[in-house]
């Protein structure tokens, strides 16, 4: 295979990589929060993103709402749904062996996808809102991706500020550092679990809304996001929230780089090979250890 790399191509890779990387970071932050606070890997994280995308699609197609203005709505809907799932099902497996929580969220995940197929059919849906690209010199970036990046960056920054500065954010971080000590300090850990789950679902929903304008919407679009979000966490180091940022950027860059050399089909496999390699060489992630 002969590929001539020009500086313009590098610029394109870097820019596209960072744009999609921000989106990865935002969605993965949700998964990382649930894992950090509850020690549960939520297999249903991707399907929640799918539901967020459908909220946007229906608000857009039924009422003509600007898809970006549906962000609060999709986040709110999934925040509530996330809390409902936590309160009815997930809280029961927080202290159970890993097998239970993985299987439970897996069961929720396939049920959600099937429900979406029943309710929304498997037809591909699209939100055709923004089209075309910005061209700056040799680099072209599609407009929805820029807007998605901007929103994702704002939401991710807001989430970090919330975690760092507010009392609730501190309580969430404290719970993920040590549940027992948090409890002793008077934090209602059950409530923190509830809020974290809702918050994480809202982050996934934001991702769903933003990519609804970019890719086709269908009930099975979510599962790959569970996998990619997990990969982002592994790249950044599990339990390390800023690591999600680093991991997201890395995944975005590597995927874009791979798409230069490989066909679309093969670049799907890149993320996977990456996961196995990281687990083989540096299982603690690029940033290493556990710290919040």
């Amino acid at each position: 295979m002969n590929v001539v790399i020009t500086p313009a191509m590098i610029a394109q890779v870097v820019i596209s990589g960072l744009l999609s990387g921000t989106l990865y970071a935002m969605v993965a932050l949700g998964l990382a929060l649930i894992f950090g606070v509850m020690r549960v890997i939520n297999i249903a994280h991707g399907p929640m993103l799918m539901l967020g995308a459908y909220v946007t699609f229906f608000l857009y197609s039924a009422f003509g709402v600007n898809p970006y203005l549906t962000l609060p709505a999709s986040m709110a809907v999934l925040f509530v749904l996330g809390m409902l799932l936590e309160r009815t099902l997930v809280f029961r497996v927080v202290d159970a062996p890993e097998l239970s929580s993985l299987l439970l969220t897996f069961g929720i995940s396939i049920a959600l996808v099937n429900l979406a197929q029943l309710a929304f059919t498997s037809d591909l849906r699209a939100v055709e809102f923004l089209t075309g690209s910005f061209v700056i010199g040799p680099v072209a970036v599609s407009k929805p991706r820029i807007v998605a990046f901007a929103f994702a960056a704002i939401i991710t920054a807001a989430a970090f500020l919330f975690l760092r500065n507010t009392k609730l954010g501190k309580a969430i971080r404290a719970t993920s550092q040590s549940r027992d000590v948090a409890m002793v300090c008077g934090i209602n850990v059950g409530r923190i679990h509830l809020i974290t789950f809702g918050f994480a679902a809202a982050l996934a929903a934001a991702g769903g809304t933003l990519i609804a304008v970019i890719v086709a919407i269908q009930p099975e679009m979510g599962q790959i996001w569970t996998f990619k979000s997990f990969l982002v966490i592994v790249l950044g180091g599990a339990g390390n929230y800023p690591g999600a940022l680093v991991g997201g950027m890395l995944l975005g860059l590597i995927e874009q780089l791979a798409s230069l050399f490989l066909t679309t089909q093969l670049s799907e496999a890149v993320a996977y090979v990456l996961l196995v390699l990281v687990l083989l060489i540096r299982p603690t992630g690029i940033l290493g250890g556990r710290s919040t």
Binding site: I43, E98, F227, E268, V276, P283
Partner: peptide, 21 residues
């Protein structure tokens, strides 16, 4: 070999992606 040396959910997620790959 790489995924089972580790504890936790790594193996589960690796298997989740294997199929698609």
């Amino acid at each position: 070999y790489p995924c089972l040396r580790l504890k936790g959910p790594y193996f589960a997620i690796a298997m989740l992606g294997l199929n698609e790959v």
